[in-house]
Design a protein around this nucleic acid. Sequence first.
DNA 1: GTCTATAATCAGATAGAC
DNA 2: GTCTATCTGATTATAGAC
Lengths: 215, 215
Amino acid sequence: MTTEVKKNKKELTRQKNYQIILDAAEELFARTGYDGASMSLIANKAGVPKANVHYYFQHKDNLYKMVLDRIIEKWNFGLENIKAEDDPATILHHYIRDKVALAITQPMQSRLYATEIIRGAPSLHDYLCDETRQWVKGKVDVFQAWIDQGKIRKIDPMHLLFSIWSTTQYYADFQTQILLIMDQQEYAEKDVASITQTVSQLILGSLGLTVPTND
Amino acid sequence: MTTEVKKNKKELTRQKNYQIILDAAEELFARTGYDGASMSLIANKAGVPKANVHYYFQHKDNLYKMVLDRIIEKWNFGLENIKAEDDPATILHHYIRDKVALAITQPMQSRLYATEIIRGAPSLHDYLCDETRQWVKGKVDVFQAWIDQGKIRKIDPMHLLFSIWSTTQYYADFQTQILLIMDQQEYAEKDVASITQTVSQLILGSLGLTVPTND
DNA sequence: GTCTATAATCAGATAGAC
DNA sequence: GTCTATCTGATTATAGAC
C-alpha cells in the first residue's frame, strides 16, 4: 500500500468519525440541552472513546458550534429568489410545505435551534444580527410589494413571516406534546398532509388567497 | 411573644423563602435548562445558602417539578366555558390577546415549558395525557360545532388550536431572535398591539371572520 | 430553621503509552 | 491517530454545629 493510499484511507476514517460524532452530538444536545449532553454520553452514543471526541473537536463549546453550523446551513433555504412579480399563493404554499416537511423529518435540528434561541442565542447572536436580519429585510420588502399591489391583504409582513416560522416549527419542537394529545406514537402520512393543509389555509386564507390544489 | 405568634412568623418566613427560591429557580431553569441551572446558582440568585434550597425542596428534580407546577397552574386558563352558541370572533380574539400578553409579560415561564416539552416532557407526561388531552378534546368539539353551524370556515380544529398556541408562544420563546432581527432591546407598546393584531388577523381571517374593533 | 463544612460523584479536559 | 488512566474542578447532597 503506497503512502498516498494510506493517507486517503486515514482522511476517510477521519471524516467518517467526524460525522458520527457530530450526529451523536446533535441528537444529545437537542434531547438534553447543552449542559445535559456530557462529552462521555456523546462519545458513548458515537461509539468512540471520550478522548477522541476531544481530539476531533477540542472543546465542548466548539463541538456545539459545529453542530449548530451544520444545522444553520441546512435550514437556511427557501424564498431564495422571490420577487414582487411572483404569485404569493404558490410561493408561500411551497415554503410552508417544505418547512413542515423539514420539521417532521428533522425535528431534532429544529429543537436544537430552538433551545439555542431560548438560551439567549449565545452562539448565534452575530449570525442573527447579520445574515438573518438581512434575509428577513429582503423578504419583508417583497411581502410589502405584494400588499401595495393588492395581491394580498394588508398585514404586518414581518409578523407574517414569524407566523409561518412558528406554526411550522411547532410540529418539530412540540412534537412530544402534540403526539401525546393526539394519542399517537408518531406522525402519520395523513397528519403531514393535514398539517400542511391547515397551516397553508391559515396563512393564505388570512391573506385572501386560496391554497393551490396542485403542488 | 406567644408561641402562636412565633409559629405564624416562622410560617411566614418559610412561605417567603419558598417563593424566593421558586422565583430564582424558574428564571435559571428557563435561561440555562435543567442541567445548566445548578443548585448553587439558584441558591445564589435567591440569596440563601445552598443547603437551605435542599432543606426546602430536598432534590433538584423536586424543585424543578414545583416550578413547573406553578407555571402549569398559571397557564392553564382561557376558553374555560366556551359553548357552541358563543361568537367565535370575540372568543378567539380575546384568547389570542391574553395569550400574547402572557407571552410578553412572562416569557421565562413559556420558555421553561417549551424546554420541558423539547426534552420529551419527562415531568409533564401524565399531565399532558390526562388534563391537556381532555381540555383539547372539549375545545375541539366546540370548534367543530362552529364549523358545522357555518360560523367559521372549515378547518382542522385541533391544528387550529395548535396554530394559536404556536403563534402566540413564539413571541416568548423566540424573543431573542425576534428582537435581534427587529434591532430592538425589548418589545415596545406598539409591538404588542401589532403582534396581537397580526396574529388575530391571521387566525380570524383564515376562518372568514374579522377582528373585533372593540375589546 | 439556618448555615458551614464536607462527602461522594461526575464533569471537561489532558498526559502519555501504544 | 487512538485510547487508557488520571487530573482538576464543579455538582448534588448531607452531616452536624448553632
